[in-house]
């Protein structure tokens, strides 16, 4: 199964933007990256390293200047194999939770009735039971994010691209959402490429973490996280966890190149439960 084609393989992907009257800007240079089928892979990097550009390329919103992007085909004929969830929830404010969730089937010409049925099945797992007719502005931040993820999942594509889905949530909600996401992921058996700023989050959720360099972005380091699944909260206190996190943080901070190194590491260490 895992020896089959990966869900996603990037080979030497570069992206250069032509700027009017100025030198072209290289956003990505030679990115190599792979997501095995069913794996949870995270991508961390300093701000502006081109993570969102990279996701845009994988989602097919833009073309790479060089390199290749191979995506395992989706189940539905003609559909791309990727479901993209951008940083902001981007729920359409004039649509109810249900209408937002089934937008993909509507746009892609899929079976709407089936999408609605599947959405109704998944509503409880997404903590949205009883909110199918609610408009987005009446929901909390966590609920909006879950509704957006439901919309992403309902596209029924084997690879989910999640761009900092929990970036705007408070710490408590964020922790709950992380655990919840792991449950959903285990249930869906999908492959995930997860972009985040938060190294601890990346380690806890992932099978593998890629660190990207500053612009022009390329992969600087990839670390496999060999913690057993299902992940449990206490694992965050284990030395293996801390070691991986430390390695990633150092690589990331070297990229950021800014002084808050000591302070940042200190706060991180204190966050672990005893």
């Amino acid at each position: 199964m895992s020896s089959a084609r990966p869900a996603l393989r990037l080979t030497g992907v570069s992206k250069t933007y032509a700027a009017a009257g100025a030198a072209p800007v290289a956003a990505l240079r030679g990115v190599h990256l792979e997501v095995r089928r069913g794996a949870f892979v995270s991508l961390v990097g300093p701000s502006g390293c081109g993570k969102s550009t990279l996701l845009g390329l994988i989602a097919g919103l833009d073309e790479p200047s060089a390199g290749s992007i191979e995506i395992a085909a989706g189940a539905a004929a003609g559909a791309s194999g990727v479901a993209y969830m951008p940083q902001r929830d981007l729920l359409l404010p004039w649509r109810t939770v249900m209408q937002n969730a089934t937008l993909g089937a509507e746009v892609g010409g899929g079976d709407r009735a089936q999408a609605r049925r599947r959405a109704r099945e998944l509503l409880p797992a997404f903590g949205l039971d009883g909110f199918e007719n609610a408009l987005p502005h009446t929901l909390s931040g966590g609920m909006r994010q879950r509704a957006a993820l439901l919309r992403t999942v309902l596209l029924g594509r084997p690879l989910l691209l999640l761009d900092e889905p929990f970036g705007a949530l408070d710490a408590l909600t964020r922790g709950q959402m992380q655990e919840w996401l792991l449950e959903v992921w285990a249930r869906l058996a999908a492959s995930v490429l997860f972009v985040t700023h938060d190294v601890e989050e990346a380690v806890w959720l992932s099978d593998r973490v890629y660190v990207m360099t500053r612009r022009p972005g390329r992969v600087k380091l990839s670390v496999d996280v060999d913690l057993p699944r299902p992940r449990e909260r206490r694992m965050r206190a284990e030395p293996a966890f801390a070691a991986v996190e430390q390695r990633l943080l150092e690589a990331l901070l070297a990229e950021a190149g800014e002084p808050p190194r000591g302070a940042s590491c200190g706060t991180r260490a204190q966050e672990h439960p005893p």
């Binding site: 951008p86 981007l90 937008l103 892609g108």
Partner: peptide, 14 residues
């Protein structure tokens, strides 16, 4: 109109 919303719907195949 929000360009990100448009990009999202395009990524769905619109």
């Amino acid at each position: 109109a929000d360009p990100d919303m448009q990009a999202l719907v395009r990524s769905m195949g619109a």
